[in-house]
Amino acid sequence: MRKALLIAITLALLATPAMSRVRHIVTDTIIPERIVVKSSLFGITLLNNLDTYLSNYNHKGLGINFSHENFRDARTGNYRWKYQTLFNATLGYATLGNNIQYTALISQSWSGYHPFKVAKGLTLLAGAQIQFEGGALYNPANGNNPAAAKLRTALAATGMVIYHFPVLRSEWIARYQVDIPLAGVMFAPEFGQSYYEIFGLGHAKGIISFTHPGNNPSWRHTLSLDIPMRIKRHSTTLRISYTADIYQSRINSIDCHIYRHTFALGFARTIFKIKRENRMNNHSPY
């Protein structure tokens, strides 16, 4: 009897992890899947820069661009929201006559969207975005004003249209995104203020300006196409994109525009944050 009891206890102990695994699987099937799409793109950028702090005339040139996007279902709100983080970096070289102007800009945005299914395969998303951008335009030939620093943050409205459509028995995804900054703050020296006064002497009063669409009419459009590749059960897609990043400001009588038209190519990879068995139930946060 005692022997039988020992065997029963041993079996029960051995069985516990297995039973707990079973419960876990059951639990997993209840929680909705959480899917993340990560993409990295490299591109060529056509630049058109104007900053009257440096020069009253447009400098045109080329640049290279890297962007990394993370688009995922949000845990909050019962997975009805989508989150996007987007990092972008541009290095460029523009000229006017013999003058050279270098461009170095990085930006990061955090967006939250609510999706609206409007038709089969067609989803609209609307939300809000926090933008941050830093960098500089640098004219080495300008003696005491060689650079115009760019530092800004803004709250933006953002929208997306996502369309799934079949092509040759696979599903392609076209996406259009628009971001429009509505209110924010930016570094803005006065009309003839030198950086020596600001950073050398500490005469930094009033160098932060409030921005709104009246003095900072900017927007960013992105059009992309995801083409599935026969790798890892469609979890990787080839992404082709075009981005028009139109940054403009008119503050303290200093006019600035940085027009970036970027043609980029890269890969987007879908990552499933659940167990392997559920991968068969394959869908995208798009």
């Binding site: 104007l50 009253n56 628009v178 509505l182 669409p213 009419p217 403009q248 006019d255 525009h257």
Partner: peptide, 16 residues
């Protein structure tokens, strides 16, 4: 709203 905001406020800022 996004479209109207863009049309209303986004004139071009260009050089001389």
């Amino acid at each position: 709203y996004l479209f109207i905001t863009q049309i209303l406020f986004t004139g071009c800022i260009d050089g001389e």
